[in-house]
């Protein structure tokens, strides 16, 4: 799959970010081929969301470069940045839906504020996005009246209504049970193929990421420790990759040892 998309839509080179004395990113790199679904894995608190916000140009990196379609964003003029924002959508972990607007108004908003479309065209495109995400029955519902899964779909409808080339997903499955987690990954993979956008997802759900992604990256101690296909990730013998990938198996082994009368250290 990766070979089929040799052109990189997004390229991250040596991004650094620190908050006071806390160094979060220390030279993180990432290559995102056009049309692919790339997942960035990492433990909680390793700076995955900060990395994604640096990519989305909503948090300035201290050093390093983010290239979108070959153009650097950090030193770009306002017009290039506006062009990037028009071609990129960001899905927040919290969905960030406007709670005082209905589902339809939420989806209409980016088109109303950033496009020159007529009111009829905006309505048509918004209704189409909601229909494709199977939310046509909830046009006048407020986000608070929807379930978590529906809110996620509404956020995705709002993200795709502008027909972006790149969609960034910040922990889209955080706090969901395994069945809903699978459903969200399936939804992202389905719409990514249907609409043809490039997707970058940050998550710590290893199995789902390996099943749904074209490429997988592992962020560890501020750097991208691994980048490759899910197959390469599955067969990697690197200790950091293996400990993250095989954490469930390691837990089973440790628990078996405990049941057999052994001792278990929390650090294990």
């Amino acid at each position: 799959m990766a070979e089929a998309h040799s052109t990189l839509l997004l390229q991250v080179k040596g991004v650094h970010k620190r908050f006071g004395d806390n160094v979060v990113l220390s030279g993180a790199d990432l290559d995102v081929p056009r049309g692919s679904l790339v997942t960035v894995l990492g433990r909680s608190g390793t700076g995955k969301s900060v990395f994604l916000k640096c990519l989305a140009d909503i948090m300035p990196a201290d050093a390093g470069e983010v290239l979108f379609d070959g153009k650097p964003l950090g030193t770009a003029d306002p017009a290039t940045r506006a062009e990037f924002r028009r071609r990129c959508s960001f899905l927040f972990q919290s969905n960030a839906l406007f709670d005082s607007l209905t589902a339809l108004e939420n989806v209409r908003l980016p088109l109303e504020q950033t496009s020159d479309l007529s009111d009829a065209e905006i309505q048509e495109r918004s209704l189409e996005a909601l229909r494709q995400l199977e939310l046509e029955k909830y046009l006048l519902s407020y986000p608070s009246q929807m379930s978590g899964g529906m809110q996620k779909r509404l956020a995705l409808a709002r993200a795709i209504v502008t027909q972006p080339e790149l969609v960034l997903f910040d922990e889209p499955t955080a706090g969901l049970d395994p069945i809903r987690r699978n459903a969200v990954f399936l939804m992202i993979a389905k719409y990514q193929r249907q609409f043809g956008f490039t997707a970058v997802i940050v998550t710590h759900d290893v199995l789902e990421a390996m099943a749904a992604s074209d490429r997988v990256a592992l962020l560890d101690q501020g750097r991208m420790h691994f980048q490759g296909t899910p197959k390469e990730f599955a067969h990697s013998t690197d200790a950091v990759v293996a400990s993250f990938r095989d954490s469930a198996a390691a837990l089973g082994t440790a628990l078996a040892s405990l049941r057999g009368g052994g001792t278990l250290s929390v650090e294990d």
């Binding site: 989305a56 924002r85 960001f90 960030a96 839906l97 980016p110 950033t114």
Partner: peptide
């Protein structure tokens, strides 16, 4: 509340001027 729930950040990622809106 809009700031805390990232609604203002969402506007900025959409390319909407949050002050203007």
């Amino acid at each position: 509340i809009q700031r805390n729930s990232e609604q203002i950040a969402a506007l900025e990622t959409m390319g909407v001027n949050s002050l203007g809106y």
